[in-house]
């Protein structure tokens, strides 16, 4: 019991971030039950202030329920964030691991490719990709993944470059293990901490990127998202600031939770800290 207390005091960021995300996930899952109507349909009079007429966050200029939008939008935003991050982490880790392990020519080719993507302003590239491929939830996922893998690749490459010269990797080579086993089972687990931490932060930036795209009207029209809501509320910002502020706060809450989770995971997975705790 005392240990548990000490543990939670040490890992407050992990617990708080995880808890905030759990609440968000629960609300997201409960959205169809709480607000069975399509969040894009008009359910009340327009421009209802928050807490008036039974609408928790009021309605927008078309009479759409803002609270329903927030909850239904959470699903799209979280899904987009997680899927696009998973894609870019997989791609980035693959490229970075191969470049870092084999070094030399392979590394040169892969890193020039990575730099090619890095030198293009990422938001512009995402914008062009979505515009060309026509906006839908999957093209947005693709666009976000394409622009956000290069930093992961560079990070993983750097980790692999330093890890591949470690003696335990040499010992595995001398033991006769094949290359893919050495990469996947000996080196990758040791590089996992920074990958997971970066990944958790990337979910946040993916949500922000999607919001920006939606704000510019390049979101998926069939799914409500927070960015879309901010964009739609923009024209009313003088009369009804909460239309933009409430989804903005939702993004803030989610990004904060993810950042806390990322920081907490970094602490939890750091073997050095684990060692001092044990000692």
């Amino acid at each position: 019991m005392k240990d548990l207390l000490a543990w939670s005091r040490h890992h407050w960021a992990l617990l708080l971030g995880g808890g905030m995300l759990a609440v968000l996930a629960a609300l997201t899952l409960a959205a169809p039950a709480l607000y069975p109507e399509d969040p894009l349909s008009m359910v009340g009079p327009p421009d209802v202030r928050p807490f008036d007429e039974g609408f928790l966050f009021g309605t927008d200029s078309l009479g759409r329920d803002v609270a329903a939008g927030i909850l239904h939008g959470a699903r799209t935003s979280l899904l987009l964030g997680l899927v696009s991050t998973a894609c870019s982490v997989l791609l980035g880790t693959g490229v970075g691991a191969v470049a870092g392990y084999f070094a030399g020519r392979v590394d040169d080719v892969l890193m020039r490719l990575t730099e090619f993507f890095q030198t293009i302003p990422s938001f512009m590239l995402a914008l062009v990709l979505v515009a060309v491929l026509s906006p839908s939830i999957w093209t947005i996922v693709l666009a976000i993944a394409v622009v956000s893998w290069p930093p992961v690749a560079r990070l993983v490459r750097a980790e692999f470059l330093s890890l591949r010269s470690r003696d335990f990797v040499k010992a595995a080579v001398v033991g006769g293990h094949p290359t893919h086993v050495i990469i996947l089972r000996h080196i990758l687990p040791n590089a996992l901490t920074p990958i997971i931490v970066t990944g958790s932060l990337m979910v946040a930036s993916a949500i922000l990127l999607e919001s920006a795209l939606s704000f510019l009207g390049l979101g998926d029209r069939n799914n409500i998202t927070w960015g879309f809501m901010i964009g739609a509320g923009r024209s009313m910002i003088r009369q009804a600031w909460w239309l933009s502020a409430i989804p903005g706060l939702a993004i803030f809450y989610t990004v904060l939770a993810l950042n806390l989770l990322g920081q907490g995971l970094a602490d939890l997975l750091n073997p050095l800290l684990a060692r001092t705790r044990r000692a």
């Binding site: 003696d167 040499k170 010992a171 040791n190």
Partner: peptide, 11 residues
């Protein structure tokens, strides 16, 4: 190897 801290996979 020389350094027993580096030659055993910490994981």
């Amino acid at each position: 190897f020389q350094d027993p801290f580096a030659s055993l996979n910490p994981r």
